[in-house]
Amino acid sequence: MKGTNIGEFEELVLLVVGVLQDDAYGVGIKKELEKQTGRSVSIGAVHAATNRLELKGFLESHFSQLVRERGGKRKKCYTVTLFGQQTLKSAMDTRARLWQLIPENSFVVKPG
């Protein structure tokens, strides 16, 4: 099925949403991503990714309570759907399997 595959950035966003729990909204995701990966991420990219992921069914969203500091705008908070969790899991599994298939001494770097 088209859309079950996710890209690297999308995978990271999904994972970060999982990490952040209640605070998983645009700016929060951006900050966490920057913190974890050390690269600068634009808010536009985050929005594009979250919206695409939502459309594909990996994410769900709800608006938070009114907040004062954002000029009265509500936060749009994301949670990872069951489908999203399965996809993440299968992506991780695929990688783990692949790692295991690598011949013992061909990599200098070892997994784990």
């Binding site: 700016v27 951006k30 929005h47 608006f63 954002r70 705008k73 509500r74 936060k75």
Partner: peptide, 16 residues
């Protein structure tokens, strides 16, 4: 549909 989310986030970033 996206406006509120985008503008809110941008405002917050701006303040930051």
């Amino acid at each position: 549909r996206f406006h509120e989310e985008v503008e809110g986030d941008l405002d917050e970033l701006f303040a930051h």
